[in-house]
Design a protein around this nucleic acid. Structure first.
Length: 440
DNA sequence: TCTGGGGTCCTAGGACCC
DNA sequence: TCTGGGGTCCTAGGACCC
């Protein structure tokens, strides 16, 4: 007895899609080095710590996702894998091109950028019978215009479209990277082929718990009711997930113009540091970066928090992220002026720092974010003078044009011996004149 | 001083995502 | 020796109020 008695029925809901760039960072690297087409490729996280993108060939030879780079090194050498440090200038620019291409192909407001390499699409304007062809066409256009290959999953809900997308990507030959779940029957089959941990919204913890309850596939999960989801998968989130799996849209498309509620800049140090002056420099630098992001969304922050992470004894067998030591302070008035943020940030760092300890990471977070034009005044402080604002916008403009922080506050330091390693970064082909690709 | 229910607001922390 | 960075949402529980 199928759990959906009307299994042959065609969906009558509006359909959604998720477009996902295939091995995005690797594809970006290959775009400018075509000779890599036949070589396995991996891209590393900041500090060349772990592997965050793998080409299909790299997956095939068994390079683990999110595995530490140093452990994979022997395998990488053996199979002549090309490894790159992350080049966010390049990926950011190519991401923008992919998203722009999608926007030209759809009515206004139908593209929701979900991450650097993914976008949800609202396809309600496309008749059901034409979905497959339209998706195929979209895939070809993106690849032709940007050089980036994408996969597209189409279904009535976001969760189901993610499931469709995963299968499209997994069976590239059979699906041509496009899978449309437009009937209950197709959906049911897709759910049966999806292990529980590959469902969007089920992480490691929940997967272990569900397997303990005898639930192995997305199909098993979908047979449970929303109330069950609420009980075992964390309240309303679980309830929504169950509805979505059963074809009932419960996670809406989001307004792409919504601003961030929290802005963070956090980094591992290139190597552990112990001096307070290094920590202060790092904190000042991260604060500057966070303030830049804040101004870009025309926001002002009223809470600033700082954390530092001590290095742990390294002789334990399983890796874990050590506890971070953090503190925050509420500002007398919301601000986006870098120096007004650096001061409290650095004094928070001073308070957290302990002489003689080694630290491996630090970070700054801005929250309590309000629109810049509606900053609540404070009777006891003079309003930020407009010179400071002009200075900020000049700095932003110059830094944007030149990149690489030509202008910065003295507190950010000049030596920066805490900076992260990026030994294998490719040129910033599309955003720096002096690093343009050369045709011979 | 003790007793009780019910409401709000805030924060810390968990879980998840890419 | 070497394991990323930047987000969101939700819940539980404490503090406080009537």
């Amino acid at each position: 007895m199928p759990f959906i008695p009307w299994a042959e029925a065609v969906y009558t809901f509006y359909m959604k899609a998720i477009v996902d760039c295939n091995s995005f960072y690797c594809s970006c690297e290959r775009l400018f080095e075509p000779q890599l087409k036949t070589r396995p490729v991996v891209v590393l996280s900041n500090n060349d710590g772990c592997i965050i993108s793998r080409s299909d060939e790299a997956k095939e030879i068994g390079v683990d996702m999110a595995g530490p780079y140093f452990k994979a090194k022997p395998l990488i050498a053996k199979h002549n894998v090309a490894a790159f440090s992350s080049n966010y200038h390049l990926y950011g620019d190519l991401s923008w091109r992919v998203m722009e291409t999608l926007r030209t192909q759809l009515p206004p407001g139908c593209v929701e950028v979900y991450s650097v390499d993914e976008a949800f699409l609202n396809l309600e304007h496309i008749p059901l019978m034409q979905l497959s062809q339209a998706a195929m066409q979209l895939r070809e256009t993106v690849e032709q215009w940007t050089g980036i290959a994408v996969s597209i999953g189409v279904a009535p809900t976001k969760v189901l479209s993610k499931i469709a997308n995963r299968l499209a990507k997994k069976h590239k030959q059979a699906t041509n990277c496009v899978l449309v779940l437009d009937t209950k029957r197709k959906t049911e089959q897709a759910l049966q082929k999806t292990p529980i941990e590959d469902v969007w919204g089920i992480g490691y913890r929940h997967a272990v718990k569900l397997r303990g309850l005898g639930i192995e596939t997305a199909y098993d999960l979908a047979r449970q009711g929303p109330a069950w989801g609420s009980r075992f998968l964390g309240g309303v989130t679980g309830e929504r997930l169950l509805r979505e799996l059963n074809g009932m849209p419960s996670i809406e498309m989001e307004d792409p113009l919504v601003n961030k509620k929290m802005i963070a800049t956090t980094r591992m140090f290139g190597s552990p540091v112990s001096r307070l002056c290094d920590i202060r420099e790092a904190i000042a630098t991260y604060t500057s970066r966070a303030a830049e992001k804040l101004r870009r969304q025309r926001g002002a922050a009223s809470i600033i928090s700082v954390f530092i992470v001590p290095k742990e004894d390294s002789h334990q067998t399983t890796f874990r992220h050590g506890p971070s030591i953090s503190s925050y302070t509420s500002l007398p008035a919301a601000t986006s002026i870098t120096n007004e943020l650096i001061k409290p940030a650095v004094s928070l760092a001073d308070r957290l720092y302990e002489e003689g300890k080694l630290y491996k990471k630090a970070g700054v977070m801005l929250s309590g974010i309000v629109p810049d034009h509606s900053i609540q005044g404070n009777l006891f402080r003079p309003a930020t003078d407009s010179n400071a604002r002009m200075l900020m916008s000049m700095m932003d403009n110059i830094n944007f044009a030149m990149r690489d922080d030509v202008l910065k506050f003295a507190a950010s330091g000049t030596e920066r011996n805490w900076k992260m390693r990026q030994d294998l970064r490719s040129p910033r082909y599309t955003t720096r004149w002096e690093e343009l690709c050369q045709a011979k």
